[in-house]
Structure formats: C-alpha cells, structure tokens
Design a protein around this nucleic acid. Structure first.
Lengths: 256, 256
DNA sequence: TTTCTTTGTGTTATTATGACACAATGATAA
DNA sequence: TTATCATTGTGTCATAATAACACAAAGAAA
C-alpha cells in the first residue's frame, strides 16, 4: 500500500531531505464552545497520542518548517505561531519506541536516521477552530481536537511539552494576540472574556474585564447584536488591528 | 603546534563526538563599574568578535552543554542561565566563512561537518563579573568583556543574537534573579538601582525604586555601611533568597 | 567650620484596581 | 398578552499602587 512505501522512503531516505537530530513539535491551540483545545494525532499502533510535528528541510528556515507542518495538519496558511522552548534531554527520544513501531508495520531498519537522538523545538500556534480541517500524517491514524484539561495518554515527553506550552500561553497572554487568532472576526464581549478565563483557568470580574479591555482601545464596537440567543443579546466587536498590535508590544498595560 | 592539531581533530572528527547541525551560543552578562557587559571572543584571523559557543555531545543535555561551555570560558560552575531563542535561518552559517578561516591556518577540508548548516540555540547567562576568569577557546585569540552599548564588529548573525538576548533580559527582568546573579553577595541600594537602570536603559526614581523593592521583602538590610566613599555612606543589603525566589515566580508584582 | 553631594525617609496628588448594584434586553413561560 | 428571569451594559465607591516631589542626615572635601 502507498502509505507503507512513503514510510519506508522516510525511514531510509529521509536524512537526504531533512536535518538530522532536530525536529519541530507544534501545539495547536483552538477555542470552541468555551473550551481551549489542542489538535493531536493518534500514533499508529502505539495507541497513544502525539503532537503534530516534523522535520526541517536542509535549506529551510525552522519557522517555515513549522508553518509547513501546520498547513498539512490544518489546511491553513499563515498561522500565528512562536517558538517557546527547546526540549533536549538525551533520553527523550528512544530508539525502542521507534523500532517497535516499525516492527508493527513490518519494516526492518536498525540504522535509520529516525533512531538517532532528536532535539525538538516547541512551537505554539493559535488558530481559528472553525477554519481548521484536521488531516492525519503518515505516522498517524487520526487527527482530533482535545480539551486542554482532558488530554489522553501521549507518547514520549509530549505531555510535558504540552504543559510547557500552556504555561507559556498563560504568562505571555498580554503579549500575544490570542483574541484575534483564536476567535472569529466578529465576537462578543462574553466570548472574549470566556477565552481569557479558560486560558488563565480562573474567573474574572465581568465589569472590570470590560473596562480594562475597552481602556486599551483595541476594540471596535459594532452596531450589530448577536441573534437567536436567550436573554439580552450582546453586541459584536472587532479588533482595531493597528491599536491591538501597538498595545501588545507594550504588554497591554493591565493585569487581569 | 598543539592548537592546530586540536583544530584538525575538531574539523575532521568532531562529528563523532557532537550532534550535527546544532550549536549553542551564550550571551554572558556581567555588571561592573555601573556598566552592563558581555563576554566576547575574538575569532582568529577574522578580526571580528564572536559569542562564546560550542556543540552538544551526542548524549548530553543541551543545558549541560551550555554549562560546560560557560565553565570553560569563565571558570565558573553552576551559572544561572536560560535558553531564550533559536536562530535557524538557513543562510546564517555560511560555508565560505569557515573555509576562509581554515585556509588561513593552513588546513584543507572541504567536507567537514563544520561546513554544514547549523541551527543555534541562544542561552543567556548571568554571572558575577568579579569572579570570572576569561579564557579563549581554540578558535579565538582573545576573550574580553565589552560594554553592551559598545559592541565591536561581530561574525555571522551574532550581533542579532546579542540584540535578542538583551531584549529578552529587559522584558523578563521581573522574572529572573538579575540582582542575585549579577551583583556581589553584599551590595548597596544605589548599586542595585543602577543595575536596573542600566538593563532597562532609562532612569528610575530613587525613592520609588527603594519603596517598591523593599515592598517585596526580598532584601535584608545589614548594619554595615559602605566605607571609603565620598558623601553619605549607603547601607549594604543582602537578598533574602527564600523570599526572592518566591517573588520571582509571581513576577515581582511591580512595574518599574 | 562650612560646603556640597549623596543617602534615607517621608508626603501628596493622581491613577488603577477590586468589589459591588441596578437598569435594560429579549427569549421563554404562564 | 404579560410576567419571568438569566444575561448584558453601565455606573459607583473604597482601597491600593504609582508618580512626582521635599527635606533632613551623613560625612568627605574645602
């Protein structure tokens, strides 16, 4: 079958295309139905889940490698992303796991470049959940969203990477356009607040939140209100991109 | 001569010891005579200066590689350091520069691993200037401190790396023990303030600074005052390490 | 003894923050 | 048709943090 041929190709000839010892792992954050979610892949046979990842082409910028990988998994171009940490423990990628995987699909390869040690650079990506069309890679049998607080068993140190990514998202909240990238173009104030609450994992005062956000001037209130909703309909807002980016550089100027 | 033998060894056999394609570059910050300084190496023949750097042993944690490199350049153990960014532009390390260097010292080697592309992880280190004993490496003819605002011509993208390191130091100021690592055990309030002013590159109000720092409870005032100084003698202070580390986790709780 | 610069310790006006109240809205139920 | 009720929009107030500023104490130098 075609997949196996592609896999063999990868194990035996991948080192001609990619840099050795370096990989990229992406944490793709989305926000849907008031939940913070991450996109994960189910590793074939292993039964465990994995972060979307890949390798760096010999003449490719690492940021572009991350973009390429993200495009393949989500279908989206120009995703907002940033590197947040390098994971370099020598024991983090073990030969055994990879070899076990190969045996399962009937490939014998003891000296593949894939068995060498890998140092992985973690990238954090913020995407519009509704625009993503998840696609599994050749190592995986599924590609699905998971609630950040209901993560399944994961391979290698991927759980640890995920944890670090979330911590990073929390501490850097005021320096990155989470609202713009995780929400749709139009959104209501309660939606924006819920996003912040979900990321920070704590309640915020509704009135103070509104005052502080409004105080930065990054929002444009629309005349339109949300339709078909019980109780009082909230107004829609859009970001004032110029002011948003300006405010982010200075760190938004408020604590929540 | 011994150096050349070591160099040949490195170019021809280094790939047996080290991971390919990955290097570590360190920005070593020190504070002396009210100036923020960085430790640089003068590249042999090139005439330009370079960041202290090196490679990762095949079974070594990247953090340990950085510690090992720092130990060799400064003589110090257990230096405070943190990774801050990965530099991965494919054109950042050019074959030409390395080959030119080799020609200058009379070595012919077209296919050395050193000519392959390198992705470099930037580490930021905070050290006690007075304890450092600078030592050049085999690629360098000198190892010296430079004022952060008087940086000489540098090789490759090292200037850019330095810039990013400084930006990182500035934005992360409240999350890292700059005072504890850059000053001596005993220090005066004006010294601490000058450190902050130098890093942030702006003046701070003397009285407000003192109040905010004192407010965190991270300082212990000593009975001793500084001797042999013109005008009123300032008191010495020490850090209350327990409270310092606690305060850092929360980000010090103040803006300067 | 006087001068002069720097340190130590205030005060005050302004601004930001957290805690809280009430009227307006509009779908749903009576 | 009207009442209900959860939710939104907007406001107030007490408190805390901040910026701006003043003056006395120290102690070497003149």
């Amino acid at each position: 079958m075609g997949f196996d041929k592609e896999l063999r190709e990868h194990y035996f000839k991948g080192h001609q295309k990619y840099l050795r010892h370096i990989s990229v792992d992406c944490i793709i954050f989305g926000f849907y139905e008031n939940e913070l979610k991450v996109l994960l892949l189910k590793a074939k046979y292993a039964g465990k889940w994995a972060l979307p990842g890949g390798f760096i082409l010999k003449e490719e910028h690492m940021d572009n490698a991350a973009q390429r990988i993200l495009k393949q998994r989500t279908g989206l171009d120009e995703i907002y992303l940033q590197q947040f940490h390098v994971f370099s423990a020598p024991e983090r990628s073990t030969k055994k796991i990879n070899q076990g995987f190969l045996r399962n699909i009937g490939i014998k390869a003891d000296r593949s470049w894939m068995f060498e040690r890998f140092i992985s650079v973690g990238y954090s990506a913020l995407v519009d959940f509704t625009k993503v069309r998840p696609v599994a890679d050749i190592f995986s049998e599924a590609c699905e969203w998971f609630n950040i607080h209901k993560i399944p068993q994961m391979i290698l140190d991927h759980r640890e990477i995920l944890k670090k990514a979330l911590e990073n998202l929390q501490t850097q909240l005021n320096f990155h356009p989470v609202g713009y990238n995780l929400l749709s173009l139009k959104f209501t104030m309660p939606e924006l607040q819920k996003l912040y609450e979900t990321i920070l994992n704590r309640k915020l005062d509704r009135r103070n939140f509104q005052r502080k956000i409004a105080g930065t001037g990054i929002l444009k209130k629309l005349d339109e209100t949300k339709k078909g909703v019980a109780h009082k309909a909230p107004y829609y807002y859009k970001f004032d991109l110029r002011k948003y980016q300006k405010a982010l550089k200075a760190g938004m100027g408020f604590d929540l």
